[in-house]
Amino acid sequence: MSEALPLFAAAFVTGLLGSAHCFGMCAGISGLFAVNASVASLRLQIPRAMAYNAGRVLSYAFLGIVVATLGQTVIKAIPDAAAPVRLASGLLIVAIGLQVAFNWRFLAPVENAGAKIWQRIAPAAKGLLPVTTIPKALCLGLLWGWLPCGLVYSVLLLAATTASAVDGGLVMLAFGAGTSPAMIVTGIGASKLSQFMSRRRLGAGLLIILLGLMTLAMPVMKFSAGPDDGVHSQHSM
């Protein structure tokens, strides 16, 4: 489990600091919660925002488990894949860092593919708007997890490299948990936070890149320290 640790951390930080983009994209959702009520009270908004986010994070975790299981089958099929896969995770985290820092969208083609999937889901989402109840908010969140989003796809790739359903799910859970504070407060209008985030994109990106470099360095360090624990790509959980 310890080897997946920097991955969780990177996913969490990506969620936490990379969500400047989500603000612009999803700020409207708080509007959708409230657009027909003259003023939606906080008492109504907070539980809905929580339910919506819980749904979204659950979707991410589910996707994480799916891709990680796929990743597992692929990686298992390749002999001596452990080291290259570790290397790939590290590079991927660096790429995510670049994506956050410079808005470099290396997964644009995947986003287009995701948009196709979304077209099948959109009609269901339409029926849930405007969000008037907590179950509706939860369902909308579950569907929202499928929105085409480069950031999500890149972290999903990272989840795939864990080659373990549990770790993959946890990577996405950490990512979703990281995005939650931002997404919950958008519902309550913390535009200040959004500005704060967008100004610090570069810093956030660099932090993620640093985590990527740590991931890259780790097998090297482990290897030099001796083969006592953690070198094997499969582990206890």
């Binding site: 948009a115 979304w118 989003c149």
Partner: peptide, 9 residues
Amino acid sequence: CPGCKAVAE
């Protein structure tokens, strides 16, 4: 991005 397009639609 496709995400914004999806939400806007």
